[in-house]
Design a protein around this nucleic acid. Sequence first.
DNA 1: GCTATCTAATTGCATATGCAAATGGCAAGC
DNA 2: GCTTGCCATTTGCATATGCAATTAGATAGC
Lengths: 249, 249
Amino acid sequence: MAETQPDAVKLDGAGPVYDQIRRAIRDLVVSGAWPPGTGVPPEHALMEQLGASRMTVHRALVQLAREGLIVRRRRSGTIVASPPASHAMLDILSIPEEVEQLGQAYSYDVLARGDGRPAAEVAERFGLRRSDKVAHLLVLHRADGKPHVLEERVIHVAAVPGVAGEDFAKTPPGDWLLQHSLWSQAEHAISAVGAQAEEAGLLAIAVGEPCLLVERRTWNQDRPVTAVRLLYPGPRHRFVGRFGPYGQI
Amino acid sequence: MAETQPDAVKLDGAGPVYDQIRRAIRDLVVSGAWPPGTGVPPEHALMEQLGASRMTVHRALVQLAREGLIVRRRRSGTIVASPPASHAMLDILSIPEEVEQLGQAYSYDVLARGDGRPAAEVAERFGLRRSDKVAHLLVLHRADGKPHVLEERVIHVAAVPGVAGEDFAKTPPGDWLLQHSLWSQAEHAISAVGAQAEEAGLLAIAVGEPCLLVERRTWNQDRPVTAVRLLYPGPRHRFVGRFGPYGQI
DNA sequence: GCTATCTAATTGCATATGCAAATGGCAAGC
DNA sequence: GCTTGCCATTTGCATATGCAATTAGATAGC
């Protein structure tokens, strides 16, 4: 079964054995070598392969399961988990989901698309080199037909091969990227800005109206994947989070 | 040593033993029965007291340590951890720290204070009953002498006994509360609003200027502790977070 | 073919045991 | 008093063992 073991688990000899195992498997998962659904070898196999006791292997796997990287079921075995679609606190659901959770009808339009090298201003804002080929998109998402959020997105073509042949007619780019790209790190920033003239026109609000601006940049192993600027009009959008003194709850 | 064991660990018989132990101790910590610094009994003591093996006790304690609720050191033993001062993603540092991290000089003024029953509008906005006694504060925080953020806060007097005799002359209320109150749950919301006339005047910005509004409410065991409304002027404030596909990093 | 039953693979949990590592505090020596 | 070294306590780690719970897949029976 080559499929169940695309790469071998390799220990690095640093620190406790259970932690070496945990890190080794974690690295295989986050690097994409073991994509979601891949079967992790059963405890007995790892035990022999690594020369550790079952309890030690077990400890590593239990911890990975608690971290959400793998899913374990008796008899079926252990598989690599699918990353959760949303990230509590601040991360945003896919926008279609976000709108549907509000009980409104979702639709969207790709207003503009350009492929080529990024303009200096864009490259700067999104942390790209001017030599990187990018796709540049402007998308308006609607809830019950009314403007909901304006998305300006840059996609690094080299990091997402399929993007050149995709027109985003059926799936908005954010959701499409979730399925067609890999990412290992993201950063977002939230701020409040007034709508510029063009933005205000598209969102059907007054110029200068306060908007919540969410900027997110995504990398895969230090290589930029995509950067997006989401402009939510007015005080009718809120991002809510809950937590306790020792962390999220 | 009564101090090291203010309450006994009690198992509830539900689920795995190690998890019963984990939850029992967690509850003692988050309820405040074991405040930060309290000594947790050593593994051997818990082992005898609970009739479990050391490895089972160990498993519970290791997990609590990973969750950050306790701190363990060889020979010294295990103590209840102090909650971290800030909460990653979105939670805000104490405002003095926030300003100092920007390399600016911090100062603040208590602009107004009222003690009594909350007005209907305030009670509504902060989830209080009109019969609850509250302290109501308006505080302007400055960075290098310039307005940085406007804080409007309501404190539930019954939940924070010392508040009546405190004038917040030396410590702003947010920091003071961190030291003098207990909380088990918080919720915050972020949105963008335009500055109202009075707010704009205090912050020295134009009326309608976009502001980032952070609203946070805090409870202790379902009892409201405090609620705060932080108004950050303009696009010069950003909240930044980083994360990976499987959670925060 | 369909269903009920059984079997075996796999994870989950708890225990017992032994040794390693760190270190607070005591004792001995100066 | 001060320093040095030792010892006992406490946590950290790994192993071996045994049994329970779950369930995919095989088998037997209809």
